[in-house]
Simulated scan of single mutants.
Amino acid sequence: MILHVRDAETDALVRELARRRGISITDAVREAVEEALSREEAPSSLWDRTADIRERIASYPSTGETADKVFYDTLWEE
């Protein structure tokens, strides 16, 4: 089966992906399409996509400080 790409920019992008991953052009196309299809099939919410960031922030120890109006006013020297 032949897949002919007639766009120079697309060809360059596929070749760059293959080079970075150390794989063949065919594998680069397959992986890119598989990744795109998986994103289409299982759209996740912003909440789900930021879970790792929220976990990292939650792991920091509490300072006991409160980010209230007084705190923000001190940042603006008011």
Rank of each mutant, 00 (worst) to 15 (best):
residue 1 M to A: 13
residue 1 M to S: 13
residue 2 I to D: 08
residue 2 I to P: 00
residue 3 L to H: 09
residue 4 H to M: 14
residue 4 H to K: 14
residue 4 H to Q: 14
residue 5 V to I: 12
residue 5 V to S: 07
residue 7 D to F: 07
residue 7 D to L: 08
residue 7 D to G: 07
residue 8 A to K: 06
residue 9 E to T: 10
residue 9 E to Q: 12
residue 9 E to F: 10
residue 9 E to C: 05
residue 10 T to L: 15
residue 11 D to K: 10
residue 11 D to N: 12
residue 12 A to H: 14
residue 14 V to C: 08
residue 16 E to T: 13
residue 17 L to H: 04
residue 17 L to F: 07
residue 17 L to Q: 00
residue 18 A to T: 05
residue 19 R to M: 08
residue 19 R to T: 10
residue 19 R to E: 13
residue 21 R to Q: 15
residue 22 G to Q: 09
residue 24 S to F: 11
residue 24 S to W: 05
residue 25 I to Q: 02
residue 27 D to P: 00
residue 27 D to T: 06
residue 27 D to F: 04
residue 28 A to S: 03
residue 28 A to V: 01
residue 29 V to Q: 00
residue 30 R to F: 03
residue 30 R to W: 02
residue 31 E to R: 04
residue 32 A to H: 02
residue 33 V to W: 04
residue 34 E to T: 03
residue 35 E to D: 15
residue 35 E to L: 15
residue 36 A to V: 05
residue 36 A to C: 10
residue 37 L to H: 06
residue 37 L to E: 07
residue 37 L to I: 06
residue 38 S to T: 11
residue 38 S to I: 10
residue 38 S to A: 12
residue 40 E to F: 15
residue 40 E to S: 09
residue 41 E to P: 03
residue 41 E to N: 14
residue 44 S to T: 13
residue 44 S to K: 10
residue 44 S to R: 14
residue 45 S to Q: 00
residue 46 L to Q: 10
residue 47 W to R: 12
residue 47 W to F: 12
residue 47 W to I: 06
residue 47 W to D: 04
residue 48 D to W: 02
residue 48 D to N: 02
residue 48 D to C: 01
residue 48 D to V: 03
residue 50 T to P: 01
residue 50 T to N: 05
residue 51 A to I: 02
residue 51 A to S: 07
residue 51 A to P: 01
residue 52 D to V: 00
residue 52 D to N: 01
residue 52 D to H: 01
residue 52 D to T: 01
residue 54 R to F: 05
residue 54 R to M: 05
residue 55 E to Q: 06
residue 56 R to K: 10
residue 56 R to T: 01
residue 57 I to H: 03
residue 57 I to T: 06
residue 57 I to V: 13
residue 58 A to R: 04
residue 58 A to S: 14
residue 58 A to G: 13
residue 59 S to H: 11
residue 59 S to F: 03
residue 60 Y to G: 07
residue 60 Y to T: 09
residue 60 Y to C: 11
residue 60 Y to F: 15
residue 61 P to K: 03
residue 61 P to F: 01
residue 61 P to E: 06
residue 61 P to Y: 02
residue 62 S to V: 05
residue 62 S to A: 04
residue 62 S to Q: 07
residue 62 S to M: 06
residue 62 S to E: 04
residue 63 T to W: 01
residue 63 T to K: 02
residue 63 T to M: 02
residue 64 G to A: 06
residue 64 G to F: 01
residue 65 E to M: 04
residue 65 E to G: 03
residue 66 T to L: 15
residue 66 T to C: 10
residue 67 A to M: 09
residue 67 A to Q: 07
residue 67 A to K: 07
residue 68 D to E: 04
residue 69 K to W: 08
residue 69 K to L: 12
residue 69 K to C: 07
residue 70 V to N: 10
residue 70 V to Y: 07
residue 71 F to T: 08
residue 71 F to N: 10
residue 71 F to E: 12
residue 72 Y to E: 11
residue 72 Y to I: 13
residue 73 D to P: 00
residue 73 D to V: 09
residue 74 T to I: 11
residue 75 L to E: 12
residue 75 L to S: 12
residue 76 W to P: 02
residue 76 W to D: 11
residue 77 E to Y: 10
residue 77 E to V: 09
residue 77 E to D: 13
